[in-house]
């Protein structure tokens, strides 16, 4: 009896363990070059437009219910004449061993075969566990059912569901665009090419700081950039193994006067 219980427990653990897939078919990865990011927030706007995100307004933001799947964190260092500002775009890191996946009581969030952290809106009951577990604070909760008044409802993306009240959501790496690329690839009986999938944030980035692709393909741009000596990942100490790789910003030391103002 105890043997069976043990076996079942092992199976369950296998199932629930993030990174259940030992190898991903595609390992979607985003590389963000912080040296190129100038904090213009074009990615935030593009994400809002692409993924039918509601505009929650000032009141909700003041209750720390700001709604965005990607946000620009800014770090200001130093006193006035010698100010350095650093920007860092943060979206769902699609961790390969994600803390959020452990907590969900209804399996609304899990890891799929492409290395994506899936959020299933239909299953979500809004227990908020995933948002509590997430160390990056990227999950957003629909406190209300937002309406798009006429004629703004015309701007909604038909490929993306409009979420309702009580559902947790987060960045999907623009799964609808991945899906289109995969569809095209399947027609031509090949794998998705590098640069074929372009999420909204990547598309809109004016400086090209964001790069998206499949890390399993060694010739892809992300695979090459991921080997850069500047690479780091957010909160690496937590061992979440994120799929978003940042390239460190190279700055002159604060003593240097020439570039002091610009940072």
């Amino acid at each position: 009896m105890s043997k069976i219980v043990k076996k079942v427990k092992e199976r369950l653990r296998d199932f629930r363990r993030p990174g259940y897939y030992k190898e991903f078919e595609y390992n979607w990865t985003m590389v963000i070059d912080l040296d190129k990011c100038n904090g213009c927030e074009a990615c935030v706007v593009a994400c809002h437009a692409e993924n039918n995100l509601p505009i929650v307004g000032k009141d909700e933001c003041s209750k720390s219910r700001a709604f965005n799947w990607i946000r620009i964190e800014r770090y200001v260092e130093g006193e006035f004449p010698n100010v350095k500002v650093k920007f860092i775009p943060i979206m769902c890191q699609h961790c390969n061993s994600a803390p959020c996946e452990l907590g969900c009581p209804v399996y609304a969030t899990y890891h799929n075969q492409d290395g994506l952290n899936v959020q299933v809106y239909n299953r979500c009951v809004g227990t908020f566990t995933c948002a509590t577990y997430c160390p990056y604070d990227v999950r957003r909760f629909n406190w209300f059912t937002y309406k798009w008044p006429e004629p703004l409802d015309q701007q909604l993306n038909p490929d993306v569901t409009v979420r309702e009240m009580g559902v947790m959501e987060k960045c999907t790496f623009c799964i609808q665009r991945i899906r289109v690329a995969k569809d095209r690839a399947k027609d031509e009986n090949r794998k998705v090419r590098d640069g074929e999938v372009v999420p909204a944030c990547v598309q809109s980035c004016p400086t090209g700081a964001l790069v998206f692709g499949d890390r399993n393909d060694p010739k892809s741009r992300v695979a090459k950039l991921a080997k850069s000596p500047r690479r780091f990942r957010l909160l690496e100490g937590l061992n979440t193994d994120p799929s978003v790789i940042y390239l460190k910003r190279v700055m002159k030391k604060s003593g240097s006067k020439k570039h002091g103002e610009h940072g």
Partner: peptide
């Protein structure tokens, strides 16, 4: 991948 949620949903 026919049983993956994101094959049909979102």
């Amino acid at each position: 991948n026919g049983r993956d949620c994101w094959t049909c949903h979102i």
